[in-house]
Structures are given as C-alpha cells and as structure tokens.
Design a protein around this nucleic acid. Sequence first.
DNA 1: CAGTTGACAAGTA
DNA 2: TTACTTGCCAACT
Length: 116
Amino acid sequence: MKYGYHARRSKFIDGQKMNTFAEIFKIVEKVPVGKVATYGNIADMAGTLNPRIVGYALSSLNSDSDIPWHRIVNRHGEISSRDGDGPWLQRELLESEGVVFTKKGRINMNVYRWGG
DNA sequence: CAGTTGACAAGTA
DNA sequence: TTACTTGCCAACT
C-alpha cells in the first residue's frame, strides 16, 4: 500500500455523508489500544486525504477529547505534535498503553503499527 | 474569490 | 541513518 493521493474526494463512509474532519475522527477512533497509526495511514483509510489534513484535524481537538489523538504519529514513529503539553502528554499516554519508545524517542513501527 | 498554512510523506543525496 | 526538497489539499484568512 503506497502513499497515494486519491483524486476523488470521498465524503462517504459506510454509506453516510460526513465532513472531512468527522471522517478522520471516525478512523482514528478505530485505532486499538497499544497500537499506533501514521497520519498517512489515517489519510489513506479515509480514502482521499492529504496526511496534512489529518494533523490539521487533530490539532483542532482538545487534550481531553474522546478521540485517541495520541495514537497518531508520523512515518518515523515520532511524535509530531506541536507545542505545549501535547508532545509530552502523547508520549505519556502511549507508554501507559504499553508502547515502548526508543532512546531517540521513536516507536518501532514494525511492532506497533496498526492497519493493514 | 485568491492566497497562505500546516501534529505529513516520498524521493533524493 | 539524517537533512533537504517537492507535492498535497482542506481549512483558514
């Protein structure tokens, strides 16, 4: 599965019409505990999105959101959140779910990556 | 309506 | 392996 941008904008998932952000959140919600997904993963599953849009959508969430935003990392298995307590909180949450970080602060994607 | 932005990814060196 | 460049596109201004 390559990182391909789909030309069509499918705003339909499971036969229901919904906006772009909702699509993203719906996918993110499916990431199981103890696993992580990349922005590209979510974008690909959503069917049409640029991975940037995924980050954009997640950035609109609060830290206490019901969406497991912390399970989304970049392709290198690194935390990409911006500033504030975001990055630290994300790592805390992941470690509390059993995700192990390397000394460089990266995640072994071969083990924890979800999808497929 | 026309830029600009951004929690990215892939390719290349 | 890291660092830099290019392509993306919805939301924002």
